[in-house]
Design a protein around this nucleic acid. Structure first.
Lengths: 351, 351
DNA sequence: CTGAAAGCGCTAACAG
DNA sequence: CTGTTAGCGCTTTCAG
């Protein structure tokens, strides 16, 4: 392959417009102190020649890379893709993040990182050194990983923490999982349920705890007991089966169950089928994920809708604005989850 | 923001290893003519200092950018994401493409391009100028877009065309849609069906035609008539509704239907419900997409499985190898689709 | 086999 | 307000 050169560079534009290199650069970067007529002249040449700056060169010159990294958990993401579980977390991130990036001339690059690995630091450093991104978006379970956060702070890379409420460096964005769990629980309570089971997520996700908290809070507020109604899962289908069995085989079996994600909700559906428990007649069910699949189960599931696209978009905006010199917010940005009612939730004893 | 410099550069490594800049570069790029002991010494320093080359600088130096662009149709992709239709095409591309890229030190960047737009050229040129990718992966309906292909050839960027069988520049990769349609049709014929309806995809996708061809071929081979059994769709749910109604309201209603994608299969399911037609008792149904959703419908659908991840992986490998100077294949690479049997297909008149 | 020199396209710093 | 001068980190010449 021949030495690859840019077909039309800043030099060509400068020559065409009859100005200096630097003036073109200033126009490109919307810097002040350029006469309007100059700006126009330069932009005309840019358009005429079809010039687009090389981000590699821009980066080399010491400016932005126009790249934002979206860090996702390697193992769980790959597993979900491979099993084709139908989780559209990454798609929603792209929808919100990529499009927002595009609007500002940035690109979003998805990067998978091992949580539990000791070489997490090496992996991340590698990505940073290679790409030199302007920003990083952390998603659970990385969002509160101090190793990652310290590293990012060290490198002065602005970042957003999705699914985090901790103050500190970086922008914290949350969908308020606790409130969402309360919403779901309250909905069941209003329907008349009192034995509402909850299947939790794994401990390495902070949000697992918040969801449990929200459920417990709503139960307590309604004067309901939670003893024996909490089962632990880890977001996997298999763990959902175990948890659902545990709850449904109990002597005080719940009349409603909230599962902390879609896979565990599907597992609960399956266990119900095994046990001959009809949903919603004998058991109401809520999924903590409104993934495409849960609309097509029988019955379609009432679900907590997580505004992943919107949160991602906000994260990107914050990162881009940050570079521009705005100041951090101390409070986490809240983009509240909502709940969508479908046919899996009815009053108890509706057989 | 301070002028951002790379923390550890090739210079540091050179100094640490006590060799010249150039030798380090040679080791990084696995070039010949370096003594093994030198290589080892340099690699030791690299490891010790945690050095990772900056791709921006590498690119500036005139070498690869280690970036591969995956071009997807903007409108349809965004629509699918926004509606959360559950299509995991992009995910599967990432699974195959991204992981393969990573294995070779490359990154995959998803890029959305308008098909029907007149500024498609500007869009693509912009992406090329900005990113200077080493390769581009074209997906339907871009795969045979001559505007795009010519441009890529012009810029000497190696590319792969997924879902294309045309010889010519770039690597053609196909899942052999025609054969897949035949497989699906044959399966129904073997079950005893003779009136097998087919809902086609839109014309701007070459593969739509191939699928119809495969169906027609299998029908003809079995001595079956296809008159009145083809309905046109455009991959959308709405078009699926129309097409399914057209077929099912016909006087010679089919006893089985193959829909060219998952959304139209779901629409057919819905229309059947409307009409009180039971699936599979009164109508067998095959989806030309084994997306997560079709496993959770009632009944779960027999489907054509498109090996998108594998095709993407192959595409990436071809592109990376191409740069290394291997020669193009004239024949399209075939990664055959398969068919997975579920409960939506049974012998006709099984009521 | 190894090193020194030149330059990729762009921007920051400094002069005018 | 505008132009000039140095690099950024790396790779390609081309000499040793």
């Amino acid at each position: 392959m021949a030495r690859r050169k840019q077909s039309v560079t800043i030099k060509h534009v400068a020559a065409d417009a009859g100005v200096s290199l630097q003036t073109v650069s200033r126009v490109i970067n919307k810097e002040p102190n350029v006469r309007p007529e100059m700006i126009e002249r330069v932009q005309l040449s840019i358009k005429k020649l079809g010039y687009v700056p090389s981000i590699a060169a821009q980066r080399m010159g010491g400016s932005r890379s126009y790249l934002i990294l979206a860090l996702n958990d390697r193992e769980r993401t790959i597993e979900a893709w491979r099993l084709r579980e139908g989780t559209d977390w990454v798609d929603q991130m792209l929808l919100g993040g990529m499009l927002t990036c595009a609007r500002h001339g940035y690109r979003l690059i998805v990067e998978l990182i091992d949580t539990h690995s000791d070489h997490i630091e090496r992996e991340l450093l590698g990505a940073i050194a290679a790409l030199q991104p302007d920003g990083v978006i952390l998603t659970p379970p990385h969002s509160e990983n101090s190793l990652i956060i310290d590293l990012l702070v060290d490198y002065k890379i602005s970042f957003a923490r999705i699914g985090s409420i901790k103050p500190g460096p970086g922008f914290a964005l949350t969908m308020d999982d606790q409130r969402a769990a309360r919403l779901a629980t309250d909905h069941l309570i209003e329907l008349g349920h009192s034995r509402i089971g909850f299947i939790s997520g794994p401990d390495d996700y902070e949000l697992s705890g918040w969801r449990v908290d929200g459920w417990r809070e709503a139960m307590t507020a309604a004067g309901l007991d939670t003893a024996g109604l909490l089962a632990e899962g880890d977001f996997s289908y298999a763990s959902g089966l175990r948890a659902a069995r545990e709850l449904l085989d109990s002597t005080i079996a719940p009349t409603a169950i909230i599962a902390s994600n879609d896979q565990m909700a599907l597992a609960t559906l399956e266990v119900s089928r095994e046990r001959g428990i009809e949903i919603p007649a004998n058991l109401s069910l809520i999924s903590f994920d409104d993934t495409p699949i849960v609309r097509f189960t029988h019955p379609p599931l009432t679900a907590v809708v997580q505004p992943i696209a919107e949160v991602s978009a906000r994260a990107v905006e914050l990162i881009i604005a940050d570079r521009a010199g705005s100041k951090h917010a101390d409070e986490p940005i809240v983009v509240p989850a909502t709940i969508v009612l479908r046919s899996s939730t009815v009053p108890p004893g509706n057989a």
